[in-house]
Structures are given as C-alpha cells and as structure tokens.
C-alpha cells in the first residue's frame, strides 16, 4: 500500500508547528497504525530527517500513551480502538491520512505528536483517590458490594487516561475523564466519605487546568477507546449539584427554640 501522510511537526512547546507531507510506500494491511509510523520513522532516519516523536508504550490498548488524531478523529476511525490497535487494513491504498496531536490548551504540544497530559494527573491529585495508608485493613468481604455496582464502577474505572475525550470534544472538555474517576470511587462504599469533597475538588482542578465545558455533544463517548458512557457525566453532574447545594452542610452548633 501507498499512503500519503500529513503529519504535524513541531520542534518543542514554544516553536511554531506545521503540517508536513510524506509519501510512504511499503505499508501492508496487517500493520498497526503505529507500525506504519515506525516505518515512516525508519524512512525519515534513512533520509537524515529527524523522526516523528509520538507517545506509545504497551501497544495493546491499555496504557493510554498513544494519542493521535487520525483524519480528525481521536485514535482514528475505528470505534473503541486505540491508535496502537488500529490497523492499516481500514485505509485504502493511496489514502491521504492526517495525523495531528491532541489539541487542548491544557495539553501543550511537547514535540510533534506528543503532548503534555500532566493536567490529568493533577486532577487525580485533587481527589481521585481514597485516602489510605498501607497496612492492616478490614476484611473485604465485611463490606459486600452488589455485583452490578462493582461492574458499573469497573466500567468507569476502565478509563485509560489517554485524553481522547478532550481531543474529541469540540470544546476540549475533560468531563468524561473526570466523571469516570469521580463515578468509579463515588459508587463504591469505600469512596463515600470523601465523595462530595472529591467531586468538588476534582472539577475545580479540571477548570483550573483550562479545559472547556461540556455541551453534551457525546463526541467523547463516541471516540473513547474504552467506550466509557456519558452516563457518568450525568452522574457527576448530579453529585456536583448535591455537593454544591445540599450535602456537606455544617449542622453543628446550638439552636434557638424560642
């Protein structure tokens, strides 16, 4: 197969980037998209052109490192598939392919197709955990969890933190990522104590990072490689409203009866 690639090249965060075009021959249908990028890099090295930098690691769809917008869609045209699990057989011979980095103010480009996603880590730092020490713990079967609840929590916890939701959202919103973590912990009995503080703190951090707002487009859900449902966004909204309007109210102190 022959492919015409248009790839975003940018030396570093401050440099001005642009799309560069490359013709690539010798692509086979059984190559993964990243193997096609490897082939491009081999070719570029042969021509003494610096290879294209891109994040990748596990190449089996779970680490969340790979992050390419392929022909306008995060992780490309296959649904529920990361870029590393996208195969060239889904493209035609002679296809023109546009490869761009995640675009978000909160994800500055580091180089070429790599972006800085530390904003996600900071959202987790704001409350995406159950406060804990390592040491003796209660017997886990002493707190039964309904399997449906555990499964739904696992649906949310399947988020791989790749950032496709942000890249896909026309508003660059991180609601799906944040909602997935808030819901995972907020649904489980272990996560109840911090539930309302968590949702407030995590969403506050999300705003500070410069992500956009949710307009219920559902692009995030459609382009999420793990197919995480926007139902979790609704759930987070509900928790957030409760947290802001009702839940953690100071009800201590004396009262007047007459």
């Amino acid at each position: 197969m022959k492919i015409k690639l248009h790839v975003w090249r940018q030396e570093n965060e401050k440099a001005k980037g642009k799309m560069e075009s490359y013709d690539l021959d010798g692509v086979t249908p059984d190559m993964s998209f990243l193997e096609m990028m490897d082939l491009l890099n081999e070719k570029l090295i042969g021509e003494s052109i610096e290879p294209v930098a891109f994040d990748h690691d596990c190449r089996e769809g779970v680490c969340g490192a790979c992050s390419m917008v392929v022909n306008g869609e995060a992780h490309g045209p296959q649904r529920e598939t990361t870029t590393c699990q996208l195969y060239m057989r889904h493209f035609n011979d002679g296809a023109e392919i546009y490869v761009e980095p995640w675009r978000s103010a909160a994800f500055p480009v580091v180089r070429d197709l790599t972006v800085d996603r530390s904003a996600f880590d900071r959202i987790i730092q704001a409350g995406g955990f159950i406060s804990n020490h390592s040491g003796p713990k209660p017997e886990p079967n002493s707190i039964p969890i309904e399997p449906g609840v555990a499964e739904t929590a696992l649906d949310a916890a399947s988020c791989i933190g790749c950032g496709a939701c942000v890249a896909a959202c026309p508003n660059g919103s991180a609601m799906l990522f944040t909602a997935a973590k808030v819901s995972h912990l907020g649904m489980l009995p272990q996560g109840q104590t911090e539930r309302y503080d968590r949702v407030k703190n995590m969403t506050t951090q999300m705003e500070e990072e410069g992500f956009g707002s949710c307009r219920n487009y559902a692009e995030c859900e459609a382009q999420c490689p793990k197919g995480i449902s926007i139902a979790f966004i609704g759930r987070m909204n509900s928790d957030y409203l409760k947290a802001s309007l009702a839940e953690p109210v100071d009800r201590r102190g004396k009262m007047h009866a007459q």
């Binding site: 390592s134 555990a150 929590a153």
Partner: peptide, 14 residues
C-alpha cells in the same frame, strides 16, 4: 487484597 479493596479496586463480585 485487603489493601486493594480499601483503595477502591473494583474486583469481581458474586
């Protein structure tokens, strides 16, 4: 297992 459950790891349940 105790530690992981207390962190909110959603192990399969019966």
């Amino acid at each position: 297992i105790d530690q992981a459950v207390s962190q909110g790891v959603p192990f399969a349940r019966e």
